[in-house]
Amino acid sequence: MLRGTGTIFWREVGQYFASPVAYLIAFALLLLTGLLFNSDLTFSLTQKPADPALIPSFLALAMVFFAPLLTMRMLAEESREGTLELLLTAPVSDTAVVIGKFLSAWFYYTILLLLTFTYQFILLAITQPDLGLAVSAYIGIWLYGGATLAVGLLFSSLTENQIVAAFLSMSVLLLLWLGDIAGEIVANLDLARVLRQLSLGGHFSTSFAVGLLRAEDVAYYAGIMVVMLFITTRIVESHRWR
C-alpha cells in the first residue's frame, strides 16, 4: 500500500460519519429501497416470485444520482479550502491521495450496500430466494458502484465547486447508463452493440443481474475505476503546474 493512503482513507471515512449529507443519503437510499422491496413483496403474493436482484438492479439507476453526491466534496473542497496545497506538499504521492479518497467512498458505499442486506434476510426468513442470483447481483452492483464513484471523483477534481462537480458527474453517469438502452434509439445494430459494451448498465443488467458472473464485466468495471483514478491523479497533479 502506498504510504499515506491509510491516513487519507480514515480521515475521509471519519468525514462521512461527521457529515449530515452522508446520513441523508443513507436515509434516502434506505427509504427508496424499502418502499420498492415492500411493493415487490406485495406482487410476489400473487403474480411472481420475489426477486433477490431487485434492490441491486434499482441501485444501478440510483447510483447515477447518489455516487456524485458521495464524491462531489472530496477534491473540490480540498482545492477550494486550500488544503490541497498542504496535501501536495506532504510527503505522500498524489496517487496515494486519490486512492485513499476513492477507497473511503467505496467503503462508505459498501456499508450502504450491507444495510440493504436486511431485505435479503427478510426474504430468507419468509421464502426460498435464489441465493446464487443474490450473490452475483450484489457483487455486480458493488463493482458498478465503485466505477460510478471513480467517475464522481474525477469530476470533483476538475472544479472547486461541489455543485458543478455533482452536476457534471451525474450527466456523464446518466449518459453511460443510458448506453444500455442504445439499441432502442440506434438503428445500426453494430453501433448499438458497441455503445452497449461501453455502457455501465450493459455490463450489469444482462449479466450480474440475472446471475451471470463474467470476467469481461468485472474487467469493464475494474477498467473504469483504474482509468478514472489515473486521470484524476493527473488532474490533481496538474495543480502543480498552474
Binding site: 499515506g4 491516513t7 487519507i8 480521515r11 471519519g14 468525514q15 461527521a18 457529515s19 479550502e81 486550500g82 488544503t83 490541497l84 496545497e85 498542504l86 496535501l87 506538499t89 506532504a90 510527503p91 505522500v92
Partner: peptide, 25 residues
Amino acid sequence: YLPERVPVYPDMTVKGYVTFWAKLR
C-alpha cells in the same frame, strides 16, 4: 509549511486536524 490562507478542515477537531498531518508526515 504554512500557506498564506491557513488551510483547514472545518469539520475536524483541533486535535484530529493536527494528528492527521502528523500521521501523513
